[in-house]
Design a binder for these strands. Structure first.
Lengths: 341, 341
DNA sequence: TCATCTTATTTAACCGATAGGTTCGCATTG
DNA sequence: CAATGCGAACCTATCGGTTAAATAAGATGA
């Protein structure tokens, strides 16, 4: 057998027409159960596989989703990435469960995603996973939206931005980790992380932080820092030099920042958690290996992937969906002052 | 304009036949340069994109490569993964550069990859990226080979296994890191890592280790360990209990193992590198954050991705290729005894 | 001037599966 | 006995390109 078997080959062997084969393989009730089985049997023997391209062409859909990862070249991706890998894993699995394939690509903002993937029928919809300076692609988003592309974005919902997004509940995450610190009895707090428009996630975390402190008499301050170790260094040294002295606890908007903070404190001879508590956000794998182990907030990536895929498929089928927030999970280690396990 | 523009729409607008449009868009010299430009101009205005499915169907190729990640459920993937993400990044970029798309999927060994991807014309070839117990899929490999699937595998070449593989030069990597330790003047060595058939990479690293020690009078021993932190713990405690006492230096077959070793040594009150040197292999991101920083061997993932894609495309085009080893790069930190930067 | 060769386009045959419409055969019913 | 109903399988147009083969118009040469 030199050439790949087609449905005609099966039709010939089964003594039926080719269209009957197609129906039989799709388990159509229009064809008698016995012929159906006979056809399927032959298909199995021949190792027959329907040609995806022919099928897609005819059905005008690809049963494929494109996952676009876009990165801000200025950010240190080697430290952020693991989170996306976890997402990738859960997204591929969710896609597979729904019978969709996943096309993955790293993108820059210049590309015309709509044209590249949806117009060409390479994919039925897009999932955007990005990090870095978000403002850069707000314009892109509205463009996609205008084209009626089926898009699902990972990240915090932003009122001004068009389209649907799925993200973790940064507010309650920030709230719960702060409450945990409060339960230790700490009186003064510092939040390290940008809270401007370009970092909506950090902003929500900060709001959760503020909300938790709410009616307490605790003092608090805030320092800017992008998502990087260096920014953590810098912010920590500012804290160390502050005339007011160190707070009891530091809430970092991201684990990477916390890692930088821990290093800086260590250099300065400040002990964690004896002298000061430090917590992060993200639960990157590194968090389990810092000394002391970093108490942090974990995002449910498995659920995130499922939700993204699920809602995207709904959108493709024409059902309207809405933004969605996923619950976070407090991961307690030692940096908050809890005893070692 | 309600429906997606097709080549017929362009043909109509340009006043030429549809086939001329197709040729013009493919920059065929068969069509006059002026009509070519006119057609391309119109296509641009309409935001036309060729339908990938139609094109693929006719050309009998998909311009897509499938990347199959398969994992051994017993291994702790959260620690191994970052390496694969780096590979993923370089592979997507290499594919994009060659005009190929990348389909990504996590797989288990039961699936019929050949049928799933190549027979269905979803992809023109496969790249296998796996870890864990390699024996499990040796059989799978020969199956693929029998089917003449176009496959490229990441990993050490194994004589008995069919198919081509691209891997890093584990031998010279093990050799160079061991030589570096020798330059510190250490006299006795331990290698931690499995050296059986199921871990061909570790085996090569071990051989490099032995080769470096070669004619020296240095003593050396070896302990089994799979690629996990726990295995590192265990091996280290064996070392600590050994009547012969601790060696001067430990070469771990993987960074994760080294991380476990470092932890165990720390608990036992053994200082690194003052009392004993420890080195790893892989340069996982964690290696930069251990205390002390882990000296290790880095694999060139960017080059690896390129080579995998390049050779796979060659295979698809029918040109025979051969196994390929990539150079490694020694990353010196403090755990080997070198001063802090 | 007519035959010959280019060059530019068009015609038409696919690629392989899907789905709407139709036909065929057989059983039921007025 | 002819008319009707119905399930099962078949016929055929179609999806949107690609490309070999056919054709038309224009240029070259004897």
């Amino acid at each position: 057998m030199k050439h790949k078997p087609t449905s005609f080959d099966i039709a010939h062997l089964a003594g039926v027409s080719q269209s009957t084969v197609s129906r039989a393989l799709n388990d159509s009730p229009l064809v008698n159960i016995s012929t159906r089985q006979k056809v399927q049997e032959i298909a199995r023997e021949l190792n027959y596989q329907v040609d995806k391209n022919a099928s897609n062409l005819r059905r005008q859909r690809s049963s494929t989703i494109a996952l676009l990862l876009f990165e801000d070249p200025t950010s240190d991706d080697s430290l952020v990435n693991p989170f996306f890998l976890a997402m990738l894993g859960s997204i591929t699995k969710a896609c597979a469960a729904k019978g969709y394939d996943l096309l993955v690509s790293f993108q820059n903002l210049d590309n015309n995603w709509q044209a590249e993937y949806e117009d060409s029928h390479k994919a039925d919809g897009l999932i955007l996973l990005g990090y870095g300076d978000y403002r850069a692609y707000a314009g892109k988003l509205s463009q996609l939206h205008q084209h009626d592309t089926h898009v699902m974005r990972w990240g915090a919902p932003v009122a001004q931005w068009p389209g649907i997004s799925i993200g973790c509940d940064n507010f309650s995450g920030g709230q719960s980790v702060t409450r945990h610190l409060l339960s230790h009895g700490y009186q003064s707090y510092a939040f390290i992380g940008d809270i401007g428009d370009k970092a909506p996630e950090f902003q929500s975390r900060y709001e959760g932080f503020l909300n938790a402190l709410g009616n307490t008499k605790c003092r608090h301050q805030q320092y800017d820092a992008i998502s990087s170790e260096e920014a953590g260094h810098l912010a920590a040294s500012h804290l160390l030099e502050a005339p007011a002295g160190l707070p009891d606890a530091i809430v970092c908007a991201a684990d990477i920042i916390a890692v930088g903070v821990l290093q800086q404190l260590k250099e300065a001879g400040v002990r964690v958690p004896e002298d000061i508590a430090v917590v992060g956000f993200d639960n990157i794998q590194l968090a389990a290996f810092t000394t002391p182990g970093l108490t942090t907030v974990q995002q449910n990536t498995a659920q995130a992937g499922e939700k993204l895929v699920e809602n995207l498929l709904l959108a493709i089928e024409g059902h309207p969906t809405d933004d969605h927030l996923l619950a976070t999970n407090l991961v307690v280690r030692q940096s908050c002052g809890c005893r070692a396990k």
